[in-house]
Nucleic acid binder design. Structure first.
Lengths: 159, 159
DNA sequence: TTTAACTGATACTATATTGGTATCAATTAA
DNA sequence: TTAATTGATACCAATATAGTATCAGTTAAA
């Protein structure tokens, strides 16, 4: 058996998965510090793995930290402004359908490439779909309140 | 620097990329046999790699082969019926946003999970987009004829 | 002022996936 | 008979993904 395929093509890796969960926990605990250990334990995320993700999120100004005893992490950015697209880009890189498809052989001869256009269109669709999903929305869904975001009406908010 | 991300999140791997190119070549040469070597050379695809992909496509009834000298591969299935979704499923597995996200910790307590629904919605969007793109459509785009498929009218293809 | 609970930073390991190569047997046209 | 070709499969290398370990520095609190 030639294993050229896997079971599923994962769109979200564990990185993003864990990051979303951690952010939901932090969004919920808004205003107080949660330690990496507490988050890891409660949400079943490998501790050291989580810490790397948290550091990365600090670098991207999504959260802040406090060192020392009773320290931990606190959400910084408005949960309604944190999209899954952003998290994917941070942890998995920019969504791209194919790095070179249709560029080399096929489109080499043609100046304007309709295929390239087709592919980019799908890229945008994927990205837009994930942009509709924010941490704020997920949190409300999770808590079953289903109320609209306080100050933002459109899900596609700017940076 | 902690490399927890790559440059880009590839949606199409080389497998699928090469398979599409090979199928385009075979669709173009419809009715005659093309050798793996010829396809590999002309489209800059690693020979042995390509052969594995061709074997896989035979198993999925997309193409047929003829052994021996002057043998090769010929397209079997109607190019308009071969979607990129199918190729992704053959070579990369079924598109799935996340295998476990929101299922374990988060949704453990709640019977009906709105998040799960959200994720599945995106999965469908992605898949539908790729289903719009067939080998037949790509071939016509490639040749610049832009005429509709003989038996199938594609409403979304006119952009 | 010592200690335990923390984060910051980074090195390390294991496994899976992806991309690619090599080999040998069987088939067939010339 | 031979060269071109597929069928089948084993193998290898690079990269990505997932997870672990360690040590230094900071801080609240005993």
């Amino acid at each position: 058996m030639v294993s050229i395929k896997q079971l599923t093509m994962k769109v979200l890796t564990k990185n993003t998965d864990y990051a979303v969960r951690a952010l939901l926990a932090l969004a919920k605990a808004k205003g107080s510090y949660l330690s990496a250990k507490a988050i890891a334990t409660e949400h079943d995320i490998p501790y050291q793995f989580l810490r790397r993700l948290l550091q990365e999120m600090i670098r991207h100004n999504l959260i802040i930290s406090k060192e020392g005893a009773q320290g931990g992490f606190m959400i910084k950015k408005d949960p309604d402004e944190i999209t899954v697209t952003q998290l994917i880009e941070i942890f998995q890189g920019k969504v791209q359908v194919s790095e070179c498809m249709f560029r080399k052989q096929i489109c080499g001869n043609r100046a304007r490439c309709v295929l390239r256009h087709e592919i980019m269109r799908i890229e945008n669709v994927v990205q837009n779909e994930f942009e509709k999903v924010t941490i704020g929305k997920l949190l409300r869904d999770l808590e079953g309140t289903h109320q609209a975001a306080p100050s933002i009406s459109t899900p596609e908010s700017a940076e």
